[in-house]
Simulated assay, not measured.
Amino acid sequence: MRLDDPALLALLLLLIPYTWLLRREVRLPRPSYLLPQLFGAPPVAGAGSRRLRTLPFLGVLRAVALILIIVAVARPQATTVEAVRPSEGIDIVLVIDASTSMAFSRISGAESRMEAARRVARDFVAERKASGADRIGLVMFQRRPLVLSPLTLDLDAIDEMIAVSVRSGLIPDGTALGVATMEAIDLLRGSDAASRIVVVLTDGENNVPDITPNQAAAVARAVGVRLYTIGLPTQVRQVGVALNELTLVYMADETGGVYFRATDARELSDAYQSISDLERERVGEERFLTTRELGPWLLLAAGLMIVLELALRSTRWRRLP
């Protein structure tokens, strides 16, 4: 709950003089009357004395009603978050290694690296689709890169391309990591999005010398593109031992991105989720709220208390003139 105008709660200070007047009313001496008493009759006790002692407590009803009115004037509101989405769109290019090692090496169980890469990338696209403002491009590579899609809002088409077109054998085998990264950067050159990123997934070392990964990272840094890199090592090794990991770490660090090491399908999925979370934090969120006014209910309760007080004063606690 929140108050739309909390400054009006200062009116609660009116309760101080009201409480003083109420206490003063309690302490005021009440007039007593001597009535003739018949011999043998029981003395006339103040039958209403108990009512008179409790009479000031009617003022409490009025005080509570006053508090409710003041709080109602401050406009208390109950808010509910209906939806959350990034305040600005993100432009993303997915770069996926489609070399034969991706197709034939297992990452967990019977699932190949390529199958896991496709599945997790599609989950990533589905999550970004919920924002409604992100554009995604798609590049796959072996010995040379193949741009499957420029930046587009049609994420259903991107999902279908990942499922159908990202596979080995369409182009000569190899690992053109640097050239593929440069192609992704080129797709982002005309973008004015709040955040521009390239997500590179590979399991090998660059073996096409036309453009090195370090050169691509330098260009990305110059044009303000962040590189997130994901490595699928052949064996479980410490970061930095494999040359491809050193390269991937450098690419990410040089551009303000992050390197993720994925040795199984769960870690691969976590890597894409972490990238999504990092970018959501970077661009901020836009929240859609529904607001329900509580003031009318407080005014209704205050009105009922005032009616109750007036009813009691005119019946059980009625004063004779």
Rank of each mutant, 00 (worst) to 15 (best):
residue 2 R to Q: 13
residue 3 L to D: 11
residue 4 D to Y: 01
residue 5 D to R: 09
residue 5 D to A: 09
residue 10 A to Y: 07
residue 10 A to R: 08
residue 12 L to W: 04
residue 14 L to G: 15
residue 15 L to D: 07
residue 17 P to Y: 10
residue 17 P to C: 08
residue 25 E to D: 10
residue 26 V to M: 11
residue 32 S to G: 07
residue 33 Y to N: 01
residue 33 Y to V: 14
residue 38 L to C: 00
residue 40 G to K: 04
residue 51 R to Y: 02
residue 52 L to Q: 07
residue 52 L to T: 00
residue 57 F to P: 00
residue 57 F to N: 09
residue 58 L to V: 04
residue 66 L to E: 01
residue 67 I to K: 03
residue 69 I to C: 11
residue 71 V to W: 03
residue 71 V to S: 08
residue 72 A to D: 07
residue 74 A to F: 08
residue 75 R to H: 14
residue 76 P to E: 04
residue 77 Q to A: 10
residue 78 A to K: 10
residue 84 V to S: 13
residue 86 P to W: 05
residue 88 E to T: 13
residue 89 G to D: 09
residue 89 G to H: 11
residue 91 D to P: 07
residue 92 I to T: 13
residue 93 V to A: 11
residue 94 L to Q: 08
residue 97 D to E: 09
residue 98 A to P: 00
residue 101 S to H: 02
residue 103 A to Q: 12
residue 105 S to N: 10
residue 105 S to G: 02
residue 107 I to A: 06
residue 110 A to C: 00
residue 111 E to R: 10
residue 112 S to T: 15
residue 114 M to L: 15
residue 116 A to V: 12
residue 126 A to R: 15
residue 127 E to C: 03
residue 127 E to H: 07
residue 127 E to W: 02
residue 128 R to W: 09
residue 129 K to H: 06
residue 131 S to I: 06
residue 133 A to L: 15
residue 133 A to P: 00
residue 135 R to I: 13
residue 138 L to K: 13
residue 139 V to I: 15
residue 143 R to Q: 14
residue 145 P to F: 09
residue 146 L to I: 09
residue 152 T to C: 12
residue 154 D to M: 12
residue 155 L to H: 11
residue 155 L to Q: 13
residue 156 D to S: 12
residue 156 D to Y: 01
residue 160 E to R: 14
residue 162 I to N: 11
residue 162 I to G: 14
residue 162 I to P: 12
residue 163 A to K: 13
residue 165 S to G: 02
residue 166 V to S: 08
residue 167 R to Y: 04
residue 172 P to F: 02
residue 173 D to C: 08
residue 177 L to I: 13
residue 182 M to F: 08
residue 186 D to K: 14
residue 188 L to N: 04
residue 191 S to Y: 06
residue 194 A to C: 02
residue 204 G to N: 11
residue 206 N to H: 04
residue 207 N to P: 10
residue 210 D to L: 14
residue 213 P to W: 03
residue 213 P to V: 04
residue 215 Q to N: 02
residue 220 A to N: 10
residue 221 R to E: 15
residue 221 R to A: 15
residue 222 A to I: 00
residue 222 A to G: 06
residue 224 G to I: 13
residue 224 G to F: 08
residue 225 V to S: 09
residue 227 L to S: 11
residue 230 I to S: 13
residue 233 P to I: 04
residue 235 Q to C: 00
residue 242 A to Q: 12
residue 246 L to P: 00
residue 250 Y to G: 02
residue 254 E to R: 12
residue 256 G to K: 03
residue 258 V to G: 02
residue 259 Y to I: 04
residue 260 F to T: 05
residue 266 R to K: 14
residue 266 R to N: 13
residue 267 E to W: 00
residue 278 L to S: 06
residue 279 E to H: 01
residue 281 E to C: 00
residue 283 V to C: 08
residue 286 E to V: 06
residue 294 L to F: 09
residue 297 W to N: 01
residue 302 A to V: 14
residue 309 E to I: 07
residue 309 E to K: 02
residue 312 L to G: 05
residue 312 L to M: 13
residue 321 P to C: 01
residue 321 P to D: 12
